[in-house]
Design a protein around this nucleic acid. Structure first.
Lengths: 139, 139
DNA sequence: GTCCATGCAAACGATTTGCATGCGT
DNA sequence: ACGCATGCAAATCGTTTGCATGGAC
């Protein structure tokens, strides 16, 4: 994590390293989950620091924000290493990663054909009902 | 618009009708654009009313929210009639609609193959640089 | 030693809420 | 006439900002 930060020209502070480590667990925390988790090891960490750093990490391409479709739901955060697709459970909000390289490209191609536009980037979020939630619903 | 509202069990108030009419112009307004436009014909309309109604219209499936990828940008709103795809200019935020029925299905199919999940719904937003913005950039 | 980062508290903006009044049915 | 909708103001929530102190380089 220290190297990643230096590569993009950011100081390797303990807080930043901790944030990246936490994101690297791939649990897709919301900001306050991140805050609560980090307080365990960094009791003095402040929310403002987390906000500031998440913005910097996003700008630097080391983190990405997963924005839910309903917008009154909270964003979740993920470490960014290579392009991948996110699937979210519409019941509980849990996020699943799919590191399938050409999936993003395929969707992109389809959009290009339809729109005749040069699609530079796509944001895809698939919505499912996860196993757990499906079970709960049955009862 | 009156009928649409009654179909979903909502009272056809002048404010609601006006909101739907405004969305039907397909200009994808933000909440305050909507507010400013509606004030012209409904000077006493309140922001709270717009917020409440947009939420109800979304829940009822008569409107959808287009959430930009950067999340500090404002959401835009659209009337919902049938599934379609949105493309957004990353420079100026302008939104373009594509009513191509099987595009949504195709993306859906790809996601299903990759994830082996039953994708119930997808949220796709394609990002481009629109003509106007491309011209501006050249200068 | 310099400059950027941190952490606190205050400021801010967007959205929601409570409540009295008005209006669609 | 009833019950939901409106509009106002206040409350709330998430996020950002300013600033003094601390820490990475």
């Amino acid at each position: 994590m220290v190297e990643k930060l230096k590569e993009v020209g950011l100081k390797a502070t303990p807080q930043r390293i901790a944030i990246l480590r936490e994101l690297d667990k791939k649990e897709h925390p919301t900001i306050d989950e991140l805050y609560n988790n980090l307080k365990k090891t960094h009791p003095s960490i402040s929310l403002a620091t987390i906000y500031k750093n998440l913005n910097m990490l996003k700008d630097a391409g080391l983190a990405i924000e997963i924005i839910p479709p309903s917008a009154n739901e909270k964003s979740k955060f993920d470490i960014y290493t290579e392009p991948h697709i996110h699937i979210m459970c519409k019941e509980c909000g849990k996020v699943f990663d799919y590191y399938v390289k050409n999936a993003v490209d395929e969707c992109n191609t389809i959009l290009k054909e339809i729109t005749k536009h040069n699609i530079e980037n796509i944001n895809v979020l698939g919505l499912i009902t996860c196993e757990e939630c499906r079970k709960k619903k049955k009862n």
